[in-house]
């Protein structure tokens, strides 16, 4: 597959050791376009859009963000906590700006499942429909997100 200069730049920025230690692709051999397309298809089959997923994630992050680094309870189902460290990360898609090094950890107590996402995850899902490659430390499976968040 031939890549445009911008796609080449994005692919390079997604590699391990460029923007983050492990990169955004994990051990997934697919091109990022393929990852995005397959995840979009999975979500469509589940009746959700990446924007709806991102909106739900943002809701939990916002609630826990102002809680003095404490775990909060939401709707008697979710336990949510956001940890922030110093600094910002750029978007591998070359979107301008930086994204807080904040990680939200959410447990759905009904299901007993815990997931986590970073501010950059949230941005990449909302703006680029990118859930990261399989094997990436911050990969979020669309099926799991739908199951846990709604």
């Amino acid at each position: 597959m031939k890549e445009t200069p911008l796609e080449l730049k994005i692919s390079r920025r997604m590699q391990a050791g460029v923007l983050t230690l492990s990169g955004f692709l994990g051990d997934d051999p697919r091109h990022f376009h393929e990852i995005i397309a397959e995840d979009e298809q999975t979500l469509a089959q589940l009746g959700k859009t990446p924007e709806e997923i991102a909106q739900r994630m943002q809701y939990f992050t916002d609630l826990s963000f102002d809680s003095f680094e404490e775990e909060i309870s939401v709707d008697d189902i979710y336990r949510v906590e956001t940890d922030v460290v110093r600094g910002k990360l750029p978007c591998p898609f070359s979107h301008p700006g930086g994204y807080r090094k904040a990680v939200t950890v959410l447990t759905n107590t009904n299901l007993g499942i815990t997931i986590r996402w970073s501010s950059l995850n949230l941005h990449m899902i909302q703006a680029h429909h990118f859930f990261e490659g399989k094997g990436s430390p911050f990969r979020l499976e669309p099926e799991l997100l739908v199951k846990v968040l709604f």
Binding site: S64, D66, E69, T82, V84, V85
Partner: peptide, 10 residues
């Protein structure tokens, strides 16, 4: 000195 959430709450 700390996270924005802590700074806001305090």
């Amino acid at each position: 000195c700390g996270s924005p959430g802590m700074i806001n709450a305090v």
